[in-house]
């Protein structure tokens, strides 16, 4: 699903964000990526959805060498990936239904299909009752559920969650992680970037620790420093 081979990323100002990183994540895996601020984890995920290109090395996602994807094809590539952010990033002028439907509209899904899939997905994330609400009328946890629904509604092969619990209280965080696990169980590869130790310790999964641009540890047993 994801393959990085000797990947380095240096920004224009000469800052080295990633150093010679190599790793493989298989289909259907659930992986935590942890690291402190400025460790290079944001660069890592930006490489995966082709927000940036590597300076050297190969980044392969869903079987495609992302550096070789021409700019105009990037939107099509991104349809394989769902991304969830710490700040939810919902369209403020669209309702819950419209926000989720948007991901299907852009890929020309027929209208009746959109209605069916959006309802199913909103039921899955537990927001079937809120389809006509606007984002500002929802709690943080609910907004994050909408964001997750939008990310998975078109059945992407890979779901990247960038600090999905960063703005949420501990109880809500647990619910969100449980939801991500449920999504993973249906076959989607899930990558959760976090610095929330609680989350990682309580869910023993493969954990990749990035520190100062290097992979500090990569374990399948979970937890920090193991």
């Amino acid at each position: 699903m994801i393959r990085l081979e000797n990947v380095s990323k240096t920004y224009n100002r000469g800052i080295r964000a990633l150093n010679n990183v190599s790793l493989t994540i298989d289909s259907g895996e659930f992986v935590y990526v942890i690291g402190t601020t400025g460790s290079g984890k944001s660069t890592f995920i930006k490489l995966l959805y082709r927000e940036i290109k590597p300076t050297t090395g190969i980044v392969e996602v869903v079987g495609l060498d992302v550096a070789k994807i021409p700019n105009r094809k990037v939107p099509y590539f991104r349809r394989n990936i769902g991304v969830v952010f710490q700040d939810f990033r919902l369209l403020p002028t669209k309702t819950v239904f419209e926000n989720v439907a948007y991901a299907l509209e852009v890929i020309d899904t027929p209208r009746h299909e959109i209605r069916k899939q959006v309802r199913q997905t909103l039921d899955l994330v537990g927001l079937g009752e809120k389809i006509n609400a606007f984002p500002h009328e929802l709690s943080g946890g609910q907004q994050q559920r909408v964001a997750i629904a939008r990310a998975i509604v078109n059945n992407p092969k890979l779901l990247i969650a960038d600090e999905p619990t960063g703005n949420l209280d501990p109880d809500t965080s647990v619910e969100i992680i449980e939801l991500l696990e449920k999504i993973n169980q249906s076959g989607t590869t899930v990558l959760v970037v976090t610095h929330d130790r609680e989350v990682v310790q309580s869910n023993k999964k493969r954990t990749i620790v990035i520190d100062n641009g290097y992979i500090d540890s990569d374990t399948s047993t979970g937890g920090y420093g193991i």
Partner: peptide
């Protein structure tokens, strides 16, 4: 611009 970046994130083509 946030709205635009979201649209790009979910795979909307530039013309869309």
């Amino acid at each position: 611009k946030t709205e635009i970046s979201i649209m790009r994130m979910v795979g909307a083509s530039n013309w869309y």
